[in-house]
Design a protein around this nucleic acid. Structure first.
Lengths: 212, 212
DNA sequence: TGCTGTGAAGTGCTTCACAGCG
DNA sequence: CGCTGTGAAGCACTTCACAGCA
């Protein structure tokens, strides 16, 4: 593939690549050295052509007649997505969910570090959670610059989510992971990802209602 | 629309309906009584035709020349999705994330109740978390029947997620919300929804890498 | 020979454009 | 007149089918 031609990559492809990494890591743990698109597709729950097309967006990682070397494929995918480097994140909203995410070691293990935490509740400011001091959101711009933060996480109640987003945008962040059940309005160029448990619960409830 | 004709409804539509409910609840809070597809679309971040088409899958809820009555539209959507009733859920894996979800009052507020919790760590069994006793997974089938549980939540580490899924399927559950970073293999007819934080983080990282 | 990489065909979701109704 | 509801057109993603290479 022409490396100069920045082809559009479907959002669904990115999501599947994340899944491939998961299953490839399992194969690697079981000392599988080479895998072809078929078993990889089976384990990921998708079509084999889909796997090949997804991977081909980023380069030619396979060996014809053989398959894909597992370890180098993991590296190729993570490098293509830009997740082979460290990412620093700020979290706004140190409630139950925020605290759980701070204790969730998987983030750090995959290179996503929460390095600063914020809350606008004066009773929380100064508290130490998981080794980090809770700061006032007014300190955000300074800390973003000092700590090289690139992604913001919102774990506030829904009614405070929009304000939190504005704080993050004003501090210069262009990527937001929103756990609050609210739609955010942000300027062009700022990316928001919604982690919405109710999306998923509603889907399950709907399918359950229909099946019986 | 013909109520007898069970048209296929796109998965994306269900997700958007969950978003519409969120923004409609905000409008209701601000005492907006009627809303047309345009502002609803704007607030939800989608196209106005999309809104109308999504709603039309389930019936004719609008008044031509006027718009949609906010309160009755919320009721119509939740009823269509089957989320106007109580849903009972079992949770497997009482770690940090599991405990955070137990403390997350929004679930209960929207009719999704976690009524039984399980872990296979013998040190955790018997512990009381958020008013519920941690049980051994061997008790699952009995409690599912007794408590009328319909949805299972997996918050175990990834290597135990598949076993947890098998416990849930064996107990007769057909809906699983999986928070573990692992793909699950389940029989036909069982629905799995993946809440994968890394999906979203990878997407943000990828877009960020490309934009600069 | 076997499996990748990829144009072409197929499918399904989204957007348009307007008829229809309050 | 304004906004909904909807067939038709457009667009994007998925799957097929096979050429091409190890």
């Amino acid at each position: 593939m022409d490396i100069l031609k920045e082809k559009h990559i479907p959002r669904a492809t990115i999501q599947r690549l994340a899944a491939y990494v998961q299953v490839l890591e399992n194969f690697a743990r079981d000392n599988v050295e080479v895998i072809s698109s078929n078993p990889l597709a089976l384990a990921s729950g998708v079509n084999a052509s889909q796997v090949r097309k997804d991977l081909a967006y980023f380069g030619e990682f396979g060996i014809r007649g053989v398959g894909y070397p597992v370890l180098s494929l993991i590296k190729a995918i993570t490098a293509s997505l830009g997740v082979d480097q460290e990412w620093r994140m700020a979290l706004i909203g140190v409630g139950n969910l925020g605290k759980a995410l701070l204790n969730h070691d998987d983030f750090r293990a995959r290179g996503f570090n929460i390095t600063a935490i914020f809350d606008c509740d004066p009773f929380k400011i100064g508290e130490i959670v998981h080794g980090l001091e809770v700061r006032c959101t007014s300190d955000l711009p300074r800390l973003v610059l000092e700590a090289g933060i690139e992604i913001g996480i919102i774990t506030t109640p829904p009614e405070r989510a929009q304000r939190a987003a504005e704080h993050l945008v004003n501090a210069g962040l262009a990527g937001i992971l929103n756990f609050a059940p609210a739609r955010l309005h942000v300027p062009e160029g700022v990316n928001v990802e919604y982690v919405d448990f109710f999306d998923h619960l509603y889907t399950l409830a709907f399918k359950h209602s229909r099946q019986d």
